[in-house]
């Protein structure tokens, strides 16, 4: 089966700063794929390249079988409708209510009557576990966890097959983070999602990630399931999983 996302030999440079030097990885359909690495290892940059916010200097990225480096305008527009993105800080439009935030893409692309649009929006709000009254609130009136849920609902508005999450549990308390992880698992089950997430939350890595890639030294230093990655002798991997916090976490297992 063709991978959903195929990254091969990507090179990214900001001025003199080489961020990626020949990165390759594969995301299969239906899996939750984690991108790991320390700060500045270029995992968020890689995510931005996958969703066409940025262009690598060299290499190839293909998503759903389309090569992002040589994409027509129409194909790009189609592709943008196949994925949803949850930004780190939510990036909800602050002048719109939660319901308007979720409905804006539907309104623009789907041309459905108002009442059905409202039903779809209400369904998404409940799907991500927000209370009904949240629909009328503005982003400034939401708590951190609610912002994450609302932007997840917005990312899911068009029923995308592919979901990108940029540090979904950062800024959440442990209970909120665990609930959010569970929500992502449930949604994957219900909607047949493929999920790519940037994270350094050890709990998320243990509980919901199927396969992961660890970035470091401008390269992918390990890729595979958690067990496979942990067997790698690379010092960065060791630091990450066998450091103080990693050791405590691994004693608990799933």
């Amino acid at each position: 089966m063709n991978p959903v996302i195929l990254v091969s030999d990507v090179v990214t440079r900001f001025g003199d700063n080489l961020v990626h030097d020949g990165i390759s990885l594969k995301v299969q359909k239906g899996e939750i794929y984690g991108l790991l690495g320390g700060s500045g290892s270029g995992k968020s940059t890689l995510l931005r390249e996958m969703i066409m916010l940025q262009r690598p200097q060299a290499g190839e990225i293909s998503v759903l079988g389309h090569d992002l480096m040589s994409l027509g305008r129409k194909e790009a527009a189609w592709l943008q409708r196949q994925w949803g993105v949850l930004f780190q800080a939510g990036a909800l439009y602050s002048s719109l209510t939660v319901a308007e935030n979720i409905g804006i893409k539907l309104k623009e692309y789907a041309h459905l009557p108002k009442n059905i649009l409202g039903e779809i929006v209400r369904m998404k709000i409940r799907m991500v576990g927000l209370p009904d009254y949240a629909a009328e609130l503005y982003p400034a009136e939401l708590s951190g966890g609610m912002i994450k849920r609302a932007s997840l609902a917005r990312a899911l508005a068009m029923d995308p097959g592919l979901l990108f999450l940029d540090e979904p549990t950062s800024g959440l308390d442990p209970i909120g983070a665990e609930a959010f992880d569970k929500l992502i698992l449930e949604l994957r089950e219900m909607l047949d999602l493929t999920v790519v997430m940037v994270t350094h939350d050890l709990d998320s890595i243990w509980t919901i990630v199927d396969r992961l890639a660890v970035l470091g030294d401008r390269k992918v230093i390990a890729e595979g399931s958690l067990e496979e990655v942990m067997r790698q002798p690379h010092p960065i991997v060791k630091q990450f999983f066998h450091g103080e916090r990693g050791r405590i976490r691994s004693q608990h297992g799933k």
């Binding site: 409708r81 539907l106 692309y109 041309h111 459905l112 779809i120 029923d159």
Partner: peptide, 14 residues
């Protein structure tokens, strides 16, 4: 019957 392809059926159903 995906979201972007529904606009034709709504008037017929209505």
């Amino acid at each position: 019957w995906r979201v972007a392809a529904l606009k034709m059926v709504v008037p017929i159903l209505e």
